[in-house]
């Protein structure tokens, strides 16, 4: 490692930080499901939070998405995609669950 530049070390530290955070955010939900120390609803909430945080960790440390250095059009593209996903997934679930409640319950 004698030939690595400070930039390399920064990159390596970034990947290792991301990996360590992702590992912790994976172990928490798997550990909760394996041991069952909480009841079902709190575990589901923890799984959801850990997944969202880990999503952000991956974007930041693995895909290097950064609001200041990433090209503006890429940030717009992912923001637009997230809006589309909210409309389409949220809308589908809303319609189907409403239909279920009206017809099956």
């Amino acid at each position: 490692m004698a030939t690595t530049t400070p930039e390399d070390r920064h990159g390596l530290r970034s990947y290792l930080t991301g990996f360590a955070l992702a590992l912790i955010l994976t172990l928490i939900p798997f550990g909760l499901v394996a041991t069952g120390v909480l009841s079902k609803t709190p575990i589901l909430v923890v799984i959801a939070i850990a997944a969202i945080v880990q999503f952000l960790v991956h974007l930041r440390y693995f895909l290097h998405l950064d609001l200041t250095t990433t090209p503006r059009e890429r940030v717009f593209a992912i923001a637009f995609t997230i809006i589309l996903i909210f409309i389409m997934v949220g809308g589908s679930l809303w319609i189907m669950l409403d239909l279920y409640n009206r017809m099956m319950v």
Binding site: T4, E7, G11, L12, Y15, L16, A22, L23, T26, V33
Partner: peptide, 28 residues
């Protein structure tokens, strides 16, 4: 199966790290 899912998750997570190390080696 929880154990099989956990093993798959770990394999993919480690592969993300090793790809990152390949990216760093590319820069070097």
């Amino acid at each position: 199966s929880l154990s099989s899912t956990f093993a798959e998750t770990m394999l993919l997570l480690f592969s993300s790290l090793t790809f990152g190390l390949a990216t760093l080696a590319t820069k070097a």
